[in-house]
Design a protein around this nucleic acid. Structure first.
Length: 804
RNA sequence: GCCCGGAUGGUGGAAUUGGUAGACACGCAGGACUUAAAAUCCUGUUCCAGCAAUGGAGUGCGGGUUCGAUUCCCGCUCCGGGCACCA
C-alpha cells in the first residue's frame, strides 16, 4: 500500500474537476431541486489568502458538497468586491492603478481559492469594479432615483479626514472611521442618500428567515423602533409652537422644562427672539465643532444655555423654560425634548446642573416617592401615576394610552413612530467606485443619465488619490465632468461622487445567476427561480451594514417589480473569527498566519478539516497549529483502512457503528457542527481499524468524509473502484433499526450518587431493571444503610434509589 | 449604562425536553518496534487519598429547586460581541 500523498492527490483531483467541468452548474436543470449556496465575497487585496478565508470558505463549501450529495443542484459562485477603499488604498500604496492591481490580485486569488478545492463555478463570477458589473449598479441607482428612493441633500455628515470622504453612519465606530480608525468630524455637505428609513418597518419583519437570533436582535436594535407622540406647546410671546417627541407622555404632568438641540430647526428659526443671542450662538458654534470623540470624552456631563423663552404645559399650566443643549440630538424625533427630571436620567442630570425643579409623577412598586431623586430611581419601568391629574392611580402603560388619547383629542399632539435607522449615505468623494449616474444642467437642474447611456465609465485617471480639498478626484477631470444634458442636450456637468462600495455588494447575489445576461442587470424569471439564496455564510460584522443594505435593495427591487421575493437570504450562518494570540489578524500587527506552509506539509483537506475540528464553526477561535497532527494521523488511518483486506471481526458491531455514524454526520453537518462530525468519523475509523471493514462500508466512509475532505474522498472512491466522481454519488442513508442499541449501560444512583451500572435493554420493564440494580454489590451495600423511600427508573437513562 | 453571548482537565473542545461530566483530539507519562532517532502502535492521563477495590471533591463564584443540576431559578465576578445622551 502506498502512503497517501496529499499534494499529488489534491493536484490530480483539482485538475480532473477542472477538466470534467463537474462543478459547472446548469441553471436550467429542473430535474433536481435548486440550492443556492453562497458565501460573502472577498475584496481582492494584494495579500495572500489567510487562515480566516479558509476558515470561512472551507466549511461553506463542505456544506454545499453535502447538499449536492443529497441530490440538490448546487449553485456555488464566488466573486470579488473590488471597488472601495481597501482596493484603492492598496493601489495608492503600491503606486499601481487600481484597475491593474485588481486584475492581478483577482487572478492571484482565484489561483489560491482553487487550492482549497471548492466547487465554485468560475464561469459565473462577478468583479464589481468592471464596467459590465457597475453598469448595473448604476442602473439600480437610477431605478431608486426614479422611484424617489434616492435623493440629494445638504446634511451634516460623518467626514473621515484621513480617507477624505464621507462615511455612512454604519461605517463609523465610537466616533472613528471603521476602516482607518481616524477621528471623524462633522461636515455639512450635499450628499446622496437612499431612503432606508422608508423601509424600516419592512426591515423589521423577519418572517420565514432562518437567521441567528443574535443577528436579528442586532438589526432590530439598529433600526431602533420606538412609538411615542409629538406634542406641541405654545411658546409665550411667539406665534411659533415647539414640538417635542416623547415615548413617555404618561409623565407629562412632571414636565418642567424643554431642551432643544443646537442644530435644531427651532434654534435657527427663532434665533432672533432669544434673550442672549451671543451666548446661544457661542454654544451652538462650539457644539458644531466638537467631534464625536470629544462628546464621548465629556461623558454625561450636561451643559446648555437658556434661550429666554418659555413654553406652556397645557396639562399643568406650568411655564417651562427652553434651553439649548447638545445632549439633545437634532436628528432624533423633532430635535426638541421635554424635560421630565423625575423620570429620566438625562433630564435629571440637566435639572441638577441648572437648578430646575424635580417633580415625581410615578410611584415605583416599592412605593418610593421621595422628592429627591437618586440616579438609580429615575428609570423605573413599572409603577403607578401620582400628581398627574386624571391619570392618578393608573399603571404607567394604561396612563400612556390615556394621555395620548387625551392629547390627540385636544389637538395638542399626534402619535408617531420613530426609528433610529438613518437614511443610507451612498456618495463618496473617492475615485475607486461606481460613478453616480446623474448630471447637472444649468437649465434642467439634476437629471438622471439615460439607461441606454450606461455605464457612466470611470475614467482611467492617473491621479486617483483623494484630493486635499475633499472633492472627488473625478472633479479634476474635465473630460469626465463636461457632458451634455440628457434632457435638453445643453452643456452640463456630471456628478463627481462615486457610490459606496456597499451598493455594489447589496445586489451581487442577483447577478451571479445572470452573468451571461447582457441587456439587463438580471433576468427576473431566472432570479425568481434561483433566489432567495438558500444558505448565506459570512461574518457577523456585516449584521448592520451589508445585511441591512442588501435586504433594503432587494425589497426596493421587489416593490418596483423587478424581483418576486422580499428577502434575499433565507438561511444565514456566521462563521466565527480566527485570532492569533487573542488579537484579530492584521498585517499591521504582523500576526497574519498563512495557510501555505500547512497546505504544503499536510495538504488542503487536512488543513480544512483541522479548521473544522478546532471547534464549532460559529465560534472561531485562537489559531494554534499544535493539533493539526491529530487530523493528519486520522487521514493516514483512514487511508490505511481503505486498503484493509481481511475478515471483519464483528460484522454486526461494525454495521451498527456505521449507521450511527451516518446519522451523526448527517445531523452534524446540517447544523454546521463539523467538529463533532469529524470526532464521530475518527471514532469510527479507530473502531474499524481494530475490527476490520468490508468494501461496502468503505464506500460509505468515503462518502461521509467527502464534504469535509473532497480530494481524499475522490481518491478513496477511485481506489475502491468507483466510477466518475463521488460527488455524483448519493449521500448514504441510515437504517433506523441499526441506530438503536439493543443493550445500553445505565447508571444506578443511590441518593443521587452513582454507585454502579448495569447493562439492560432500553425498553426493559421497571421491576426487572430495579431488581438487577439491587443485585449490584456496591448498590446493595448502600441500600442496606436504610429504607428505600423512592425508586426512579428512566428507561435507557438512569436508575435511582432514595434511601432514608 | 442597556441588550446578547460565554466561562467545563495542562490545551482545543464534547455532553443540556434535568439522568453515569470530560466524547474526539492535542500534550504529557510509560511501554513495544529500532543500534538510535523519527514515524507508527499499545497503555495510562480531572483533582485528592489508596497497591487496588473504593471513597471524597469537581463544569467561574455564592445561594436555591430536585432523588439527581454543566443543564432550571435568584444574586454576583470575569471575558467577548453589539448599542449607546434615540427622549
Amino acid at each position: 500500500m502506498a502512503q497517501y500523498n496529499a499534494s499529488e492527490v489534491e493536484k490530480k483531483w483539482q485538475e480532473k474537476w477542472e477538466e470534467s467541468g463537474i462543478y459547472k452548474v446548469n441553471l436550467k436543470d429542473k430535474k433536481k431541486k435548486k440550492f443556492y449556496n453562497l458565501v460573502m465575497f472577498p475584496y481582492p487585496s494584494g495579500d495572500k489568502l489567510h487562515v480566516g478565508h479558509w476558515y470561512n470558505y472551507g466549511p461553506a463549501d463542505s456544506y454545499g458538497r453535502y447538499m449536492r450529495m443529497n441530490g440538490y443542484n448546487i449553485f456555488e459562485p464566488m466573486g470579488f468586491d473590488s471597488f472601495g477603499l481597501p482596493a484603492e488604498n492598496y493601489a495608492i500604496k503600491t503606486g499601481t492603478h487600481p484597475s491593474k492591481s485588481i486584475a492581478t490580485n483577482v487572478e492571484h486569488m482565484i489561483k489560491q481559492l482553487k487550492r482549497i478545492g471548492t466547487m465554485y463555478d468560475w464561469d459565473k463570477t462577478v468583479i464589481t469594479s468592471t464596467p459590465e458589473y457597475y453598469k448595473w449598479t448604476q442602473w439600480i441607482f437610477l431605478k431608486l432615483y426614479e422611484a424617489g428612493l434616492a435623493y440629494k441633500k445638504e446634511a451634516p455628515v460623518n467626514w473621515c479626514p484621513s480617507c477624505r470622504t464621507v462615511l455612512a453612519n454604519e461605517q463609523t465606530q465610537d466616533g472613528t472611521c471603521e476602516r482607518c480608525g481616524s477621528e471623524i468630524t462633522k461636515k455639512s455637505m450635499n450628499q446622496w442618500f437612499f431612503k432606508t428609513r422608508d423601509y424600516a418597518e419592512k426591515l423589521l419583519d423577519y418572517k420565514g428567515l432562518d437567521w441567528p437570533d443574535k443577528t436579528i436582535a442586532m438589526q432590530k436594535n439598529w433600526i431602533g423602533k420606538s412609538m411615542g407622540i409629538d406634542i406641541s406647546y405654545e411658546v409665550l410671546g411667539l406665534k411659533d409652537k415647539i414640538t417635542v417627541y416623547t415615548t413617555r407622555p404618561d409623565t407629562n404632568f412632571g414636565a418642567t422644562f424643554i431642551v432643544v438641540a443646537p442644530e435644531s430647526e427651532f434654534v435657527a428659526r427663532n434665533f432672533e427672539k432669544f434673550k442672549d443671542k451671543e451666548a446661544v450662538e457661542l454654544y451652538v458654534e462650539e457644539a458644531k465643532r466638537k467631534t464625536d470623540i470629544e462628546r464621548i470624552a465629556e461623558g454625561r456631563k450636561k451643559t446648555g444655555v437658556f434661550t429666554g423663552l418659555q413654553a406652556l404645559n397645557q396639562l399643568t399650566g406650568r411655564k417651562m423654560p427652553i434651553f439649548v443643549s447638545d445632549f439633545v440630538l437634532a436628528h432624533v424625533g423633532t430635535g426638541c425634548v421635554v424635560g421630565v427630571p423625575g423620570h429620566d436620567l438625562r433630564d435629571f442630570e440637566f435639572a441638577q446642573e441648572k437648578g430646575l425643579e424635580v417633580i415625581r409623577v410615578v410611584v415605583g412598586p416599592d412605593g418610593d416617592n421621595s422628592p429627591i431623586v437618586k440616579a438609580e430611581q429615575v428609570q423605573e419601568e413599572a409603577g403607578t401615576m401620582v400628581n398627574s391629574g386624571f391619570l392618578d392611580g393608573m399603571e404607567i402603560m394604561k396612563a400612556k394610552d390615556a394621555i395620548m388619547d387625551y392629547i390627540e383629542e385636544k389637538g395638542y399632539g399626534k402619535r408617531v413612530t420613530n426609528y433610529k435607522l438613518r437614511d443610507w449615505l451612498v456618495s463618496r468623494q473617492r475615485y475607486w467606485g461606481a460613478p453616480i449616474p446623474i448630471v447637472y444642467c444649468e437649465k434642467c437642474g439634476e437629471v438622471p443619465v439615460k439607461e441606454k447611456d450606461l455605464p457612466v465609465e470611470l475614467p482611467d485617471n492617473k491621479d486617483f488619490k483623494p484630493s486635499d480639498d475633499g472633492k472627488s478626484p473625478l472633479s479634476k477631470i474635465d473630460s469626465f465632468v463636461k457632458c451634455k444634458c440628457p434632457g435638453c442636450g445643453g452643456d452640463a456637468e456630471r456628478e463627481v461622487d462615486t457610490m459606496d462600495t456597499f451598493v455594489c455588494s447589496s445586489w451581487y447575489y442577483l447577478r451571479y445567476p445572470c452573468t451571461d445576461v447582457k441587456n439587463k442587470a438580471f433576468d427576473s424569471e431566472r432570479v425568481n427561480e434561483w433566489l432567495p439564496v438558500d444558505m448565506y455564510i459570512g461574518g457577523p460584522e456585516h449584521a448592520c451594514m451589508h445585511l441591512i443594505y442588501a435586504r433594503f435593495i432587494n425589497m426596493a427591487l421587489r416593490d418596483l417589480g423587478f424581483v418576486g421575493f422580499k428577502e434575499p437570504f433565507k438561511r444565514l450562518v456566521h462563521q466565527g473569527m480566527i485570532t492569533k494570540d487573542g488579537a484579530k489578524m492584521s498585517k499591521s500587527k504582523g500576526n497574519v498566519v498563512s495557510p501555505d506552509e500547512f497546505i504544503e506539509k499536510y495538504g488542503s483537506d487536512v488543513f480544512r478539516m483541522y479548521l473544522m475540528f478546532m471547534g464549532p464553526f460559529t465560534d472561531g477561535g485562537d489559531w494554534n497549529d499544535t493539533g493539526i497532527t491529530g487530523v493528519a494521523r486520522f487521514v493516514d488511518r483512514l487511508w490505511k483502512l481503505m486498503n484493509f483486506e481481511g475478515e471483519v471481526k464483528d460484522v454486526d458491531g461494525l454495521k451498527r457503528a456505521l449507521h450511527k455514524l451516518i446519522k451523526k454526520v448527517s445531523e452534524d453537518v446540517e447544523k454546521f457542527h463539523f467538529n463533532t462530525a469529524l470526532a464521530g468519523m475518527m471514532e469510527f475509523v479507530n473502531l474499524a481499524g481494530k475490527i476490520g471493514i468490508d468494501k461496502e462500508s468503505k464506500l460509505i466512509v468515503a462518502s461521509l468524509i467527502a464534504p469535509m475532505a473532497p480530494h481524499l474522498a475522490e481518491e478513496c472512491f477511485e481506489v475502491l473502484g468507483g466510477k466518475g466522481s463521488i460527488f455524483d454519488a448519493a449521500w448514504p442513508k441510515f437504517d433506523k433499526k441499526l441506530v438503536v442499541d439493543d443493550m445500553v449501560r445505565i447508571g444506578v444512583q443511590v441518593n443521587g450518587k452513582v454507585r454502579g451500572d448495569i447493562e439492560v435493554a432500553p425498553d426493559m420493564g421497571k421491576d426487572e431493571a430495579l431488581k438487577m440494580a439491587r443485585e449490584q454489590e456496591n448498590v446493595a451495600k448502600y441500600l442496606a444503610d436504610g429504607k428505600v423511600v423512592k425508586e426512579i427508573y428512566v428507561p435507557g437513562k438512569i436508575i435511582g434509589f432514595v434511601v432514608k
